[in-house]
Write a protein that binds this DNA or RNA. Sequence first.
DNA 1: GAAACAATGGGATACGGTTCCCTCACCCAC
DNA 2: GTGGGTGAGGGAACCGTATCCCATTGTTTC
Lengths: 358, 358
Amino acid sequence: MSQRKGSGDSGRATIRDVAQRAGVSVASVSRVLSGNYPVSDELRRRVMKVVRDLDYVTNAHARSLAGGGTPTVAILINNITGAAFTHVAKGVESAASLRGWLTLVGTTGDDPERELALVNLMRQQGVAAVILLGGAYDYDEYQLRMARFARSLDAADSHLVLVGRPPLEGDVPATTVDYDNEGGAYAMASHLLSAGHRRVLVLPGHAELTTAQGRLKGAKRAFEAYGVPFDPGMVRHGPYDYGHGYDAVEESLRQGAAFTAVLAGTDVVAAGAAQALRAAGLRVPEDVSVVGYDDIPLASQLTPQLTTVHVPYEEMGRAALRAVADRRESGRRRVGDADHLVLGTHVVVRQSVRPPTQ
Amino acid sequence: MSQRKGSGDSGRATIRDVAQRAGVSVASVSRVLSGNYPVSDELRRRVMKVVRDLDYVTNAHARSLAGGGTPTVAILINNITGAAFTHVAKGVESAASLRGWLTLVGTTGDDPERELALVNLMRQQGVAAVILLGGAYDYDEYQLRMARFARSLDAADSHLVLVGRPPLEGDVPATTVDYDNEGGAYAMASHLLSAGHRRVLVLPGHAELTTAQGRLKGAKRAFEAYGVPFDPGMVRHGPYDYGHGYDAVEESLRQGAAFTAVLAGTDVVAAGAAQALRAAGLRVPEDVSVVGYDDIPLASQLTPQLTTVHVPYEEMGRAALRAVADRRESGRRRVGDADHLVLGTHVVVRQSVRPPTQ
DNA sequence: GAAACAATGGGATACGGTTCCCTCACCCAC
DNA sequence: GTGGGTGAGGGAACCGTATCCCATTGTTTC
């Protein structure tokens, strides 16, 4: 008893089961299913009937071991619930599924250890690319770390894509999809300045976060361009969340800081700031103007609707996947520094800015 | 020339490359790496050095073909950017990664064809489970369709998990993780009624969506319990989005409907409703009270902060994964109807409800 | 000092597909 | 009538890893 494989009713049907039951060879079944080889109608009919009867699907692992297989991309993200990068993920996933590709997701929770573990895990999976989302902390090791990732993945016929992160220096095999972060901040600050605001509370984000650094830099440039002295005392760093927006405004008011506008690092921070202003009896935008950054759905759902900077997150996701697909199709490798894509940003004017009254 | 395998510098290193370079057998390398077999320190050292030099990682496809491999769960979701189910996804992913499992995501975009294709794709991947998120449309075929999915997956040693969807009837091998949807709506409506509201505009969602049906039913029960006649004319169906909330309120006001409160199907709908009220010169909550459902972060970021129903989305995600892990550990199969988990909901009182003034 | 035993390492096979190479049958042209 | 061409289907090698089974070596015990 006990043949190579029992006439198993348990577990999953294999291609051999199908072949045997249809009275054809394994090779024929494979050909019928992949459809890349001429097969007679009769054979196709016989095989497909058994496939339906057995509810057979091919084993993706075996398939990809043997050379074929559906490509997979991995998205690594700090926090899956962050609105902005959820849209990037959507762009990636929709572009991937359009091509029949699969999407794996992993969350790093800002932990470098976990990030490393996930990159390796994804390398094991043989993913076509690892897409890293979100601003990075600008610690010294960052460049080295990413370069190492890039080379590891490249050596494994995979590829590293950085979305919304600073590009890598030197000849590193990675693709960067970025947006004009500093330019958006420049435009946003200019909008406030041209409305007449001079004393602006700035909440750029964490000091070490590259995103925050760019936004602060853009704001400073705008002040400079307008010939308005920039007061470092009006900058408050902190996380990109509602609580920080609230607390920063509350404290500033308590300390008697005088400002007629708040330039927030994200829409969520802006929401917190606006709430704190109201709690202090100040009206937005009549008494104090508030602007955000990112243009997530929340921005247009607040009252007043938030003037903010639009970032094409979903398009960035699509662009990232397109870059991967293109390079894979063309068999291209190591294309040097042409792999840096920067998408534009622009101010969306809504209702949260008025000229200062004082 | 051309051995079985070139001393390849291209592509990915295999376990054979490592074995050869370390001067040991393939079996030994495998043992060192999986660590489930006694190995001498000397051997381990030699192997690990080569592994580091070559930056070798095992091929996950080959590994799972050979029996091992890291389990994977698939999340299928309508729209990845929906706030509520993003939290479920987070719960699933965090619980998965805690166990070293991987998470695949796919979006169905409300398309049954695509849903079917994705379930089959996931079956090919040999996932431990397919987790379907979000309310379903109550078309006749639903039960049959899901039962078919459940049986297909079960036959392939996988499993179907429904989250936030109605459970399946009969002896179907599926797990359901649900929340007390109707109960939450009942409590929310009761909250309004006990504050004195009698004329309430109800925006439950799409009439065919099971979630909306439950929320409407709960509201009706509350009216009944309070002995207040429920006016079907005050119900407006529509999608769970900001625009619907806005439009529904705007139209109701235009048509001269008199109401002192809005019972919205989701927080986002509530946000739209509140905005429309303000646009019409009505204050929230002084003139009209507004309540939502879901308790997504938006709810506490609006002004006024929204009174709503808390749904433990993230916990549902964790529970779903736990259910899968448990049944896989215990080798349990077909456990009948004990596989229906219902988590509680409760009203979160914030600032958007006041007794009616008229 | 020989025999039984524990501790390690190697060879071979299986996992479930894809695809190369070959056979076989059939058809056409000379 | 025979040779060569064409096209469909079968046999088998191979993808990269895990593990069963056996060989070897060093250690302990009588």
